[in-house]
Every structure is written in structure tokens, then in C-alpha cells.
Amino acid sequence: MRAGSKQTGTGNGHHQLIGVDFHDFIQREQQLTNYELAEEYGITLGDVKDLKKKLSRN
């Protein structure tokens, strides 16, 4: 059985989003592409997509 998005985030134990300023991320996400956001914050494209997905739920 495949792991869902919630399960994959908790299983690895290594979270790169610790140093991300979420207020700054929200402001910049409308101006920059996913690739530029990943480069700016030093995270992967998958992390950018997951973060946008989580922020859009709230």
C-alpha cells in the first residue's frame, strides 16, 4: 500500500522547513515560481508544493 502525503512527512524524521519564514514565503509565493522559491529557501520543489498545499487549506 502506498503511503499518503501525511505519512511520508512524518516517517523520514528530517524536516527542512525549520528555517523557513512562513510570512515571507506567503508574500513571495505570488511573485516567484516554485523553482525560485526552492532556490531562495534552500528546499526541494516537492517541499514547496507541499507547503503551498498545506497553506491553501487554512
Rank of each mutant, 00 (worst) to 15 (best):
T44D: 05
V20G: 05
K52F: 00
Q7C: 11
V48R: 00
H23L: 10
F22P: 03
R57D: 07
L17I: 09
K54N: 04
L32G: 02
T33Y: 13
L55T: 04
T10V: 09
H14F: 12
M1I: 07
T33S: 15
K49R: 14
V20R: 00
D24K: 10
K54I: 06
T8L: 12
H23R: 14
D50L: 12
S56D: 02
N34T: 06
Q16T: 04
H15M: 11
Y41G: 01
Y41L: 00
N58Q: 12
Q30L: 05
E40G: 00
G13R: 14
G42Q: 04
E29L: 07
E40N: 08
L51Q: 01
F25T: 05
D24W: 05
K53T: 05
T44L: 01
V48M: 04
G46H: 03
L51I: 05
G4W: 14
Y35V: 15
V20A: 03
G4K: 03
K6D: 14
G19W: 08
D47Q: 14
G11S: 12
I43G: 03
H14C: 04
L45R: 10
E40A: 15
E40R: 14
G46D: 02
N12E: 14
L45P: 01
E39M: 06
G9D: 03
Q7D: 14
Y35L: 15
R57H: 11
K54Y: 07
D24F: 05
T33L: 05
Q16K: 10
I18G: 01
Y35A: 15
Q16L: 10
